[in-house]
Design a protein around this nucleic acid. Structure first.
Lengths: 111, 111
DNA sequence: CTCTACTGCAACCAATGGGTTGCAGTAGCC
DNA sequence: GGCTACTGCAACCCATTGGTTGCAGTAGAG
């Protein structure tokens, strides 16, 4: 996962309806029509959300007979989680270093 | 981190400008005016972004003399990362179970 | 073959949100 | 005390987006 993709995939996860869709798809493959029956939005709205999720790799779609079934991709979410964890750790370590420097009497890093 | 907060905090992370701000704040505390000087947006826009980030716990603010300095909170990001990782694993395990059931000749789960 | 049902595309609408300018308040620096 | 600079609030603008309805295409079921 490249760093520039972080805002995009986070934006895809930044919508409650899409989380509803992902939760359903996490339990098993479903078609867009089936999702539309389960959720209080139209099938076309579901379709747009699915396109967003597919573009960032959070769902995959497969034609099965007459309908197209979609499923949530856990690997992609895991990759995002690892990246966020790494960044969070960086913030904490840098903040600790700053606090150490502030409290230490000798403020020269070269020492 | 409650599950209902996931879309909100992800939405906060779903903007490129906010990631710019977070990156700067991850290197050390800064004031809104300093951020506005470093980024190609106005101070008021920075202020709105900081409010969003503060509401979801990704930055903390502290009055230091005449100015207010902000810093990125790594712990919050780590909590989000753990939650996303957990959900991603759930998806993968359930999908594996479904595939197993589909390939196994005896489709009765009670057996 | 026909009928049903799921998909895909397009146009349109309203709300949200990222951005701006302007102004008032307030707290250090000299 | 006066000047400077940073903060906070409000109003406004426009692009994006989540949502809708409608229609055309297409592929299984009977």
């Amino acid at each position: 996962m490249t760093a520039s993709a972080l805002p995009v995939v986070c934006a895809a996860l930044g919508d409650a309806t899409r989380w509803e869709i992902l939760t359903r798809l996490g339990e098993g493959p479903m078609s867009a029509s089936a999702l539309a029956r389960a959720l209080p939005v139209s099938r076309q709205a579901i379709g747009k959300h699915l396109e967003v999720l597919r573009e960032v790799g959070l769902v995959e779609s497969e034609r099965r007979g007459r309908e197209v079934v979609h499923l949530a991709v856990g690997a992609r979410l895991g990759a995002l989680a690892r990246e966020l964890d790494r960044i969070g750790r960086d913030w904490e370590t840098r903040l600790l270093r700053i606090k150490e420097l502030a409290e230490r009497p000798g403020p020269d890093p070269a020492t």
